[in-house]
């Protein structure tokens, strides 16, 4: 079994009466990408600040890489990179100067620092502009500079708060790729986001947050199975006898619903990614398959479904 990089036990933070994080039990394993997902104000940033020892928990226990962030903040912060929400740099300094400051704060000797900075900027595609003042950078470039900034300390883990906020769809997509590259280097990634749909594809596991509590966690597939009874949507285009094709599709194990959309298009609702099975069924029914497309269940839907149920339950209990 892999090691736990983060462990919290009944972690709680209250701000004069307001409970920002409520008895959180979170476990993150080495090498995974974990997404803390939930709407604004659900306690994600507060959780991160406690993990880094930047704010004191009101109650509960935290372990980060086996260390207690409240007592050993320097060791934790030397090993964990943090990219805050809407990260900023010193605008008048160049990228290299900004990263050199980070390196010095980490006690890295100048020569070694210069090598690491060059390497990190190169990997983030910023070599060309490394001697330009950061004020000339676009939002996306700053976000990549932020990754270079955490790479300087060669972290075991990187924590990112709202990493795709403010990026255009293409920039966000590129950034998700960078996150995946970090994982390939065996860096554990914890990211917090309210853009569930945008980041779900990159996360190995997710935890859904609501009002300071992590209500459910698991892989997207697990959650989809549990709360959406599948929720995969397969769209296929096939010529041939409509009734035969529909019948064949309905008989595929795991398919919950089939609908004809017109112009030889069918929509199949399924418990999993059944593209292969559906294709075979169409062919066996004498149809000619023209196209096939699958949509994984959306975390947004899962989120809405789950918290609606919770609300209904509590209303039922109240009534």
């Amino acid at each position: 079994m892999s090691k736990n990089v983060i462990e919290t036990q009944d972690l709680t933070k209250r701000y004069n009466g307001v409970t920002a994080v409520d008895n959180l039990n979170l476990t993150i394993q080495e090498g995974e990408i974990f997404g803390m997902l939930g709407p604004n104000g659900s306690g994600k940033t507060t959780t991160i600040l406690m993990l880094l020892g930047l704010t004191e928990p009101t109650a509960g226990q935290v372990r980060v890489l086996g260390l207690d962030p409240a007592r050993q903040p320097l060791s934790v912060k030397a090993r964990v990179g943090y990219i805050p929400d809407q990260v900023g740099f010193y605008d008048d300094l160049t990228a290299v100067e900004n990263l050199m400051y980070t390196a010095k704060l980490n006690g890295i000797p100048r020569k070694e620092a210069l090598a690491r900075i060059d390497d990190a900027l190169d990997r983030m595609g910023l070599s060309e502009v490394k001697d330009r003042a950061v004020k000339t950078y676009s939002r996306g470039m700053k976000q990549r500079l932020a990754v270079a900034d955490v790479l300087i300390k060669q972290p075991h883990m990187v924590i990112m708060d709202e990493p795709t906020q403010g990026l255009d769809p293409e920039g966000a997509h590129e950034f998700l790729k960078i996150i995946r590259d970090l994982k390939d280097e065996n860096i554990t990634v914890l990211l917090a986001s309210h853009l569930l749909h945008q980041v779900q594809s990159v996360c190995d596991r997710v935890g859904l947050f609501n009002q300071g509590r992590m209500a459910i966690s698991g892989t997207v597939e697990e959650l989809a199975q549990k709360y959406m009874k599948g929720g995969y949507r397969i769209e296929l285009e096939a010529i041939g006898d409509r009734e035969a094709i529909e019948k064949a599709l309905k008989e595929v194990e795991g398919v919950t619903d089939v609908a004809y959309l017109g112009r030889d298009r069918y929509e199949v609702r399924a418990k999993g990614d059944l593209r292969a099975e559906a294709a075979r069924a169409v062919v066996l029914a004498g149809g000619g398959l023209l196209g096939l497309h699958v949509e994984a269940p959306s975390l947004d839907d899962i989120y809405v479904r789950f918290f609606q149920e919770v609300k209904h339950d509590s209303q039922r209990q109240a009534a």
């Binding site: 943090y82 990260v87 900023g88 704060l105 980490n106």
Partner: peptide, 14 residues
């Protein structure tokens, strides 16, 4: 206002 504070304090310093 430059949003650098949390990044600087996330380095191993007090």
């Amino acid at each position: 206002s430059r949003r650098t504070l949390s990044r600087v304090l996330a380095q191993p310093i007090y």
